[in-house]
Amino acid sequence: MGIFLRELRIHGRGGQGSVTAAELIATAAFKSGVFSQAFPAFGVERRGAPVQAFVRFSDEKVRLRSQIYEPDYIIVQDSSLITDVDVFSGLKEGGIALVNTEKDTVDGVPEGVKLIAIDATSLALEILGLPITNTTLMGAFAAATGEIGLEALEEALSERFSGSLAEKNIAAARRAYELVKEGQ
């Protein structure tokens, strides 16, 4: 096992792009020289059902294949999940919870956890014209944790999307990045 192993768990609903978010965060981390691993936990494959996706970051090859139970970070794409799913389960003390919400506070955040609340839905609607929050939250994740650089994230986004779609998603990620940086 390596010198460091940090773990991210993403909570979302089917159709919100949680798996894509995990893949792109892992890709951005790899581009920053980290050995990353991203994988989904598929439940029932339908829109709206709670889904999880996971990312591990390490200085060396990640061998562990189990799901993530004690994450350093969580991303919650949809705050309505908090009443259905124990999104904070196992979140480490000193960990970071990044929650998409219109409100300033979130119920149930464990003690010792840093909450970053961001209205990613409004940002995504404004910039992308769609309430798809995954790329916005990736920008916020980069700013909040420093696990991935903004440049690497932009590179990963432009590999995944093309043309104006890439530009809009990069703009959304960048805006969220700046907002979180300003708040720190």
Binding site: A26, A38, P40, F42
Partner: peptide, 12 residues
């Protein structure tokens, strides 16, 4: 190879 655990995992 294990479905999902390897087929759907992103890694280097």
């Amino acid at each position: 190879f294990d479905g999902f655990i390897l087929s759907h995992t992103y890694e280097p």
